[in-house]
């Protein structure tokens, strides 16, 4: 496992067709989202009621929504929020979950036992349950949705890191490091972590796409992003009551979510194939929001 060096990972993966398609596809949306930080065709905070439901035209490539906001600009900003929520939730999961998993694997015994049980407990908290608690206490919002998804990610990354670390611990070079007098923690972070890095990247891609779906679900029931901010999930929710009259308003954000998730997933699949075909069975479950 994880025999590939980090620098080579990308290059090798590039020759895998599904990685290439997935990577280019998600890259396209990520770039659009990043551009929206600095520039969008129109300012989405300015509403223009007189110009609502405008059809696609040169001025508005995808038309305007029920407030007369430019759909291209809305999709860019919406994708930005969705990505930020999903990416930061992954970051939360990694920063807390990976050390958790490494420590559990390194020390074993009672520490491993306690950490693993805590982890099992967290695993019983699909994002929606954490989101309910957080919303009950602090009210709804994109940041709260991110934390809720992040809590679930902690459990996922801890599990992956622990599993990866345990299998690498058997290898000889770890014994060598131990003999040279290195402490457990130092070994974990210096030798084990770099070797499970690619494993974590694959998992990150899975959690990223789940995060985007979870954000959409939470926004749909009102526990996620709140206006005047927008996200793909919120756009979908707000447009749905217009579906029979102006279907594009809902189809565009819905399709964007579907495409982003598919692209990230097939990129992840490709990456997984390249890393180790046997890894492919380590499917992760849908957090379903």
């Amino acid at each position: 496992m994880g025999k590939l060096k980090r620098e080579n990972l990308f290059k090798t993966a590039w020759f895998h067709p599904s990685f290439r398609i997935g990577f280019l596809g998600s890259f396209f949306f990520i770039i659009l989202a990043i551009i929206s930080i600095f520039w969008t065709p129109y300012n989405i905070e300015e509403l223009n009621i007189a110009n609502r439901f405008a059809p696609a035209s040169f001025n508005h490539l995808l038309g305007t929504d029920f407030f007369g906001r430019d759909m291209v600009s809305m999709l860019m900003k919406g994708a930005l929020t969705s990505f930020i929520v999903a990416v930061l939730a992954v970051v939360i999961g990694m920063i807390i979950g990976v050390p958790f998993g490494l420590i559990a694997a390194s020390y074993g015994g009672i520490i491993d036992n306690i950490l693993s049980k805590t982890n099992d407990f967290l695993f019983a908290f699909p994002a929606i349950i954490s989101a309910i608690i957080i919303t009950a206490i602090f009210g709804p919002g994109a940041i709260n949705a991110m934390i809720a998804i992040g809590i679930f990610n902690i459990a996922v990354f801890a599990r992956v890191a622990r599993g990866g670390a345990l299998s690498i611990k058997m290898l000889q070079f770890i014994d060598a490091a131990k003999l040279s007098g290195m402490g457990e923690l130092k070994i974990a972070f210096k030798h084990i972590l770099p070797n499970i890095f690619s494993l974590l990247i694959v998992q990150a891609s899975v959690q990223l796409s789940l995060g985007i779906l979870a954000e959409a679900g939470l926004s749909y029931i009102g526990f996620g992003t709140q206006p005047p901010q927008t996200s793909l999930g919120l756009m979908l929710k707000e447009a749905q009551s217009f579906f029979l009259i102006h279907p594009t308003l809902a189809i565009l954000p819905g399709l964007t979510i579907v495409l982003i998730v598919i692209f990230i997933n097939i990129a992840g699949d490709g990456l997984r194939d390249v890393l180790d075909p046997r890894l492919a069975k380590e499917e992760t479950l849908d957090a379903a929001g």
Binding site: G217, Y220, L236, Q240, N265
Partner: peptide, 18 residues
């Protein structure tokens, strides 16, 4: 299967209703 995973289930529900 990829599409099935990628469609938000609440939206799929609404489309089923329609």
């Amino acid at each position: 299967a990829q599409i099935g995973i990628a469609i938000p289930n609440f939206w799929f529900g609404m489309l089923l209703v329609l």
